[in-house]
Measured scan of single mutants.
Amino acid sequence: RPRTAFTQNQIEVLENVFRVNCYPGIDIREDLAQKLNLEEDRIQIWFQNRRAKLKR
């Protein structure tokens, strides 16, 4: 699968959610997927990668 290119707006929304909860449940991820026009699994991976970035 090709790399997902997130828009600046999508990143802002994801970062705002991350600040509140870095482990969002499936319900939050599915809601975000619908709002941001992305697949839920892409959102899940984004949070996984963002948590890894935080640990660095």
Rank of each mutant, 00 (worst) to 15 (best):
R1M: 12
R1A: 15
P2E: 15
P2I: 15
P2Q: 15
P2G: 15
P2W: 11
P2H: 15
P2T: 13
P2S: 15
R3N: 09
R3C: 05
R3T: 12
R3E: 14
R3Q: 14
T4Q: 15
T4D: 08
T4L: 10
T4E: 15
T4V: 12
A5I: 14
A5L: 14
A5S: 15
A5Q: 15
A5N: 15
A5F: 15
A5C: 15
F6H: 01
F6Y: 11
F6Q: 03
F6M: 13
F6A: 01
F6V: 09
F6N: 05
F6R: 03
T7M: 07
T7V: 03
T7C: 03
T7H: 07
T7K: 08
Q8V: 13
Q8W: 03
Q8I: 05
Q8E: 12
Q8S: 12
Q8R: 12
Q8T: 08
Q8D: 10
N9K: 09
N9F: 08
N9T: 10
N9S: 12
N9I: 13
N9C: 07
N9V: 12
N9Q: 06
N9Y: 12
Q10E: 07
I11T: 09
I11G: 00
I11W: 07
I11F: 03
I11Y: 05
I11A: 06
I11C: 03
I11H: 12
I11P: 03
E12Y: 08
E12A: 08
E12G: 04
E12L: 08
E12P: 00
E12N: 09
V13Y: 02
V13I: 15
V13G: 04
V13K: 05
V13P: 03
L14W: 03
L14K: 04
L14Q: 00
L14F: 02
L14R: 01
E15D: 03
E15M: 08
E15H: 05
E15I: 04
E15L: 02
E15N: 08
E15R: 05
N16V: 02
N16D: 11
N16Y: 04
N16K: 11
N16E: 10
N16T: 10
V17K: 04
V17R: 01
V17W: 00
V17T: 09
V17I: 10
V17N: 00
V17Y: 07
F18I: 07
F18K: 01
F18H: 03
R19N: 08
R19S: 07
R19K: 10
R19W: 03
V20G: 09
V20H: 11
V20P: 01
V20T: 11
V20N: 14
N21C: 02
N21F: 01
N21R: 00
N21Y: 04
N21K: 02
N21V: 04
C22S: 14
C22F: 05
C22T: 12
C22I: 13
C22P: 13
C22H: 15
C22R: 12
Y23I: 02
Y23R: 06
Y23V: 04
Y23F: 06
Y23K: 08
Y23G: 06
Y23L: 07
P24M: 01
P24G: 03
P24S: 01
P24N: 02
P24Q: 07
P24L: 06
P24T: 00
G25E: 11
G25V: 00
G25K: 13
G25D: 11
G25S: 10
G25C: 07
G25T: 11
G25F: 04
G25L: 01
I26K: 15
I26W: 10
I26R: 12
I26L: 14
D27G: 11
D27F: 14
D27L: 07
D27H: 05
D27I: 05
D27M: 10
D27Q: 14
D27N: 12
D27R: 13
I28E: 09
I28V: 12
I28G: 02
I28P: 02
R29A: 10
R29D: 02
R29I: 08
R29W: 09
R29V: 12
R29E: 00
E30S: 08
E30I: 13
E30R: 14
D31E: 11
D31G: 09
D31Q: 11
D31W: 04
D31C: 05
L32G: 00
L32R: 01
L32S: 01
L32A: 01
L32D: 01
L32Q: 05
L32P: 01
A33I: 02
A33T: 03
A33G: 08
A33K: 04
A33Q: 15
A33W: 02
A33F: 02
A33Y: 06
A33S: 10
A33H: 04
Q34S: 08
Q34Y: 06
Q34T: 12
Q34A: 06
Q34C: 06
K35L: 05
K35I: 05
K35N: 07
K35T: 13
K35H: 03
K35A: 09
K35C: 04
K35F: 03
L36N: 04
L36I: 11
L36W: 10
L36H: 02
N37S: 05
N37K: 11
N37R: 10
N37I: 05
N37C: 09
N37D: 09
N37E: 10
L38I: 13
L38V: 13
L38P: 04
L38R: 01
L38N: 04
L38A: 09
L38K: 03
E39H: 06
E39K: 05
E39F: 03
E39R: 07
E39V: 03
E40C: 06
E40L: 07
E40G: 06
E40F: 10
E40S: 09
E40P: 15
E40W: 00
E40K: 03
D41N: 15
D41I: 11
D41G: 09
D41L: 07
D41P: 11
R42K: 14
R42T: 14
R42V: 13
R42H: 11
R42F: 06
R42Q: 15
R42A: 13
R42Y: 12
R42W: 13
I43T: 04
I43Q: 01
I43H: 04
I43A: 05
I43Y: 01
Q44M: 10
Q44R: 12
Q44N: 11
Q44G: 08
Q44T: 12
Q44I: 13
Q44D: 12
I45H: 09
I45K: 14
I45S: 13
I45M: 11
I45W: 15
I45N: 14
I45F: 14
I45C: 14
I45R: 12
W46A: 02
W46L: 00
W46T: 02
W46M: 00
W46D: 05
W46R: 02
W46H: 04
W46N: 07
F47Q: 06
F47P: 00
F47D: 04
F47G: 01
F47C: 01
Q48I: 08
Q48S: 12
Q48K: 13
Q48M: 11
Q48P: 03
Q48V: 11
Q48T: 15
N49I: 05
N49M: 12
R50L: 01
R50E: 14
R50V: 02
R50N: 06
R50K: 06
R50W: 03
R50D: 05
R51S: 05
R51M: 10
R51W: 02
R51G: 03
A52G: 08
A52K: 11
A52E: 13
A52Q: 09
A52N: 11
A52D: 11
A52C: 09
A52F: 06
K53S: 12
K53N: 07
K53R: 13
K53E: 14
K53P: 06
K53Q: 14
K53Y: 05
K53V: 08
K53F: 07
L54V: 10
L54I: 13
L54C: 11
K55F: 06
K55G: 07
K55I: 13
K55Y: 05
K55M: 09
R56W: 15
R56M: 13
R56P: 14
R56V: 09
